[in-house]
């Protein structure tokens, strides 16, 4: 098993944290993990992105050319990274902010209205957790509990009261993905 996951969006959307939580949760489940951020000027303009690698074996290359999965939070990131998803891979995108449909037909697509669902969970900032919940539902890669455990470790003390809303946001995301999967089967 070797999952090479891209998370991309703009600064402030919790892009780096999302990748960090995936890596942390992977470590809690005794996998080999690596988290590689983009750094430098790019962090403050266009897109911010990071790669999280989760594997059963030693991780060799920290540099990924083609991702097995991508969590895309905004339109510029979709344009930049759509072509870098492996055929048969997975693309989960925030349909609250991305009004166009991706071009690729050889990958699995999951539009998730992350902003709306985050608002429904009672925490506008938790769109990234919606995306995470959806991603874990679509892949079964890690247990959502591990992500919550990871969040408990990295969250700053004055934000601890948001943990229940973050958990709720993950549930909203996984429910949205379940619905899409059912529709696909039905369609």
């Amino acid at each position: 098993m070797l999952e090479e996951i891209l998370v991309a969006g703009f600064g402030g959307q919790g892009v780096l944290l999302t990748g960090h939580l995936l890596a942390y949760a992977g470590m809690l489940e005794n996998r080999e993990v690596a988290w590689i951020p983009s750094y430098g000027a790019e962090m403050r303009g266009g897109t911010a992105h990071c790669t999280t690698i989760i594997s059963d074996e030693e991780i060799f290359s920290p540099v990924v050319e083609q991702f097995s999965s991508a969590l895309i939070f905004n339109r510029p990131s979709l344009h930049k990274f759509e072509k870098r998803i492996k055929p048969g891979g997975l693309l989960l995108f925030n349909s609250s902010l991305i009004r166009e449909y991706p071009q690729r037909s050889d990958i699995r697509l999951f539009p998730v209205p992350a902003n709306e669902l985050a608002a429904r969970a009672g925490l506008d900032r938790a769109a990234n957790m919606v995306m995470l919940g959806g991603f874990l539902e679509a892949t079964g890669l890690l247990s959502p509990d591990s992500v919550i455990k990871a969040l408990e470790k990295v969250i700053s003390p004055h934000r601890r009261h948001t943990l229940p809303a973050n958990r709720q946001a993950m549930l909203e995301g996984s429910r949205a993905v379940r619905t899409i999967a059912r529709q696909c089967k039905a369609g």
């Binding site: 993990v33 690596a34 988290w35 590689i36 951020p37 750094y39 991780i59």
Partner: peptide, 10 residues
């Protein structure tokens, strides 16, 4: 190098 400095691993 910059990759090693910036990346996270267990």
């Amino acid at each position: 190098d910059g990759i090693l400095g910036q990346m996270m691993e267990a």
